[in-house]
Design a protein around this nucleic acid. Structure first.
Lengths: 241, 241
DNA sequence: AAAATGATTGTACGATATACAATTATTAAC
DNA sequence: GTTAATAATTGTATATCGTACAATCATTTT
């Protein structure tokens, strides 16, 4: 296709013609939240080499596909979900990172709601949720990717409303606090946490209670996306600490 | 080379054999500081297409070269500098970002000291420093790269000691303040700025003065890297605001 | 000696972060 | 139906930090 184009710079043409192929892949670090801790979606490779070893879910980037689109495709193929919170993490570009072909990978992390994904699809792909505090060994540099993603999540969650991406649309404040405790890996003070999240005026209290975890029940809330965009337009951020 | 390897997964082999080449490049957003404002190193393309247009400095990543090494190579080729502060910005991976071959680019931004680089080399490459507030149109998506880099610099400089990377080893506090004013694009209060930067105990006052900009002269300081690493080990950061 | 110039310093107030425990709503048990 | 049990909900006091604000100092030039 591209070979037909006219007027390409000589250096580019020469480089192109002389070079061997370099593969570009993307690997997704897919986080969920359940029972007080962060989960990570991994799958067991069914082909050699490294057969049977746990791995992040990834794919090569096709020639006619944006890098971000490749990550969205991977995510949809395995979870059935579109329009998920996903962001670029980092490029993993060491020469020897993959024992096969030369392949660089763009790590992208995603936050999904565990009550929304397609459980059949996940099963078909042999994917399993693992607690991030109890992960098996992973192939290649995937452990580094996970560590980097957790670190980035910790930093970003402090000022951007990422916690909500891991909960269903309706959630209780204790659930929200639990998400942030899992992300920050430490306990938060209930009174201070409530004061802070309410201070931004982006939570809408509903007339329903969730009674699954207490006799009294906890009120459900929704996140108000419009008020949040007003908040950031005003130059503020969504601080939780 | 890689074709000889045994035991590659069938999907990988098939993908490799059927795919066309995708090029991987890196583009450097090289910042300097002088006369109160941030500068950007650009060069004028000497080959078609886009001949004569301003561009960031970049290169293809070689098959036997880490992505980060490619950026370091580019930077050294044009400035003669090694061990410069450089960090990955973002991957630019849109299918149509380059009108020639399919090529993704890893943007990396660097901070250098304008009194240290090799001026001959820069001239040889036809590169010129431009004020970031007065940039010419740039090729491809390079304007977006610059905008992203400036935004990232603004965010990171708030908590990491990046300002020092743009000044020579010895600097005055007014110079340091001027760097941060250029990064944050606003004026800072002298008393508050001094209070804050001194509070971290990472500046060493020297017995020399710089008299180039005032009759009284301003004391020179050095950045104490060891004390800084102690600071971050203690869980603190280098806040400037 | 006086004027000019930029460097240097302190204080007061408001906002924010953090530490800390009693009360409330509801259900289950007696 | 009273009591016990459980988790949800709420407020205050203090320390820390961000920010606004102007006078004095060191040095050179006139």
């Amino acid at each position: 296709m591209y070979e037909e184009k006219e007027g390409l710079p000589a250096v580019t043409r020469k480089f192109y013609e002389q070079s061997e192929k370099m593969l570009v892949a993307t690997d997704c670090i897919i986080f969920g939240f359940d029972a007080g801790s962060l989960k990570l979606l991994l799958f067991k490779r069914r082909v050699s080499p490294l057969e049977g070893q746990w791995s992040l879910i990834g794919s090569f980037v096709k020639l006619d596909e944006d890098v971000s689109a490749a990550a969205e495709r991977v995510l949809e193929e395995i979870t059935g979900l579109k329009e998920v919170y996903m962001e670029e993490l980092k490029v993993y570009g060491a020469v020897d990172r993959d024992p096969g072909y030369r392949c660089i990978s763009v790590g992208q992390y995603a936050l999904i709601r565990l009550n929304e994904y397609d459980k059949e699809l996940v099963k078909e792909h042999g994917a399993v949720w693992h607690d991030v505090n109890d992960l098996p060994p992973l192939v290649l540099d995937h452990e580094q990717m996970v560590a980097d993603a957790l670190e980035k999540l910790k930093n970003k969650a402090r000022y951007q409303p990422l916690g909500f991406e891991l909960l269903s649309e309706k959630f209780t404040i204790p659930q929200l606090q639990s998400v942030y405790e899992a992300i920050f890996q430490r306990e938060l003070d209930t009174r201070n946490f409530r004061k802070k999240v309410f201070s931004h005026n982006v939570l809408v209290k509903l007339d329903e209670k969730d009674k699954s975890s207490s006799k009294r029940g906890a009120f459900l809330y929704k996140f108000d996306h419009k008020r949040y965009s007003d908040l950031i337009k005003g130059g503020s951020d969504f601080g939780v600490l």
